[in-house]
Design a protein around this nucleic acid. Structure first.
Lengths: 108, 108
DNA sequence: TGGTTATTTGGCAATATAGCCAAAGATAAA
DNA sequence: TTTATCTTTGGCTATATTGCCAAATAACCA
């Protein structure tokens, strides 16, 4: 096992942190189906454009999404399809976790 | 696709957030090999016991680890082995991301 | 019981994050 | 150039997170 202070864990954490927000998960999910410009995503999400833009910039920084400018629009694409496996996997974690919590509640 | 305000994304994000810290990734990695008590993890990590305990409690809350008390020790175990697939997957994301960044630097 | 070790919890300060508004940049059309 | 649209950035406040110390709790042993 690598040492804690090695960069491995920090880099891992950075990727996970980038994905660890409901809005950003929604964005990754949407981009997994097709590219979208900021204005489309803004409408789907229903937040301020600047807020959505900042989420996108965060995802771009983590290398998860990429951009393509066309006219005045900026289209975002999912660069790492593996991120979707991530989500599938996290669903399993989530469901196992929920099942456990339900069991715990019933025990009371 | 589900709506943004559905609980799906929030629950996903909660799991990811729980994993999104270098120390907690280290812990999950370590517990993937064998159970450990708090004192062992504390020594490996080199932080205050209370800090490690709080990280563990956070992971427990997310349903990722479980505990077994033996004597005065509390042994933590990885409850969701899928979390390790997570890490493998995130490694791919990370490596793809790094490769991209290196490419970007060379372009300058 | 009292003492010892292991763990958790409360409290605090430093730092990071999220989301809004307003302003600045960028691009295209008139 | 002016205008309009799309996007990003700066600034701000509210909130959350992290990590340490100190104190409380738990379990065992003498």
């Amino acid at each position: 096992m690598e040492k804690l202070d090695s960069s491995k864990y920090a880099l891992h954490a950075k990727i996970l942190k980038a994905l660890a927000h409901p809005t950003r998960l929604f964005i990754v999910d949407a981009l997994g189906k097709k590219e979208h410009c900021v204005c489309e995503l803004t409408q789907m999400i229903g937040a301020d454009t600047s807020t959505v833009s900042k989420h996108l910039s965060l995802l771009k920084n983590a290398g998860i999404v990429g951009i393509e400018k066309r006219g005045t629009n900026v289209y975002y694409t999912l660069k790492i399809p593996c991120a979707l496996n991530f989500l599938r996997c996290s669903r399993e974690v989530m469901e196992a976790s929920l099942a456990e919590q339900i069991k715990a509640i019933r025990k009371q």
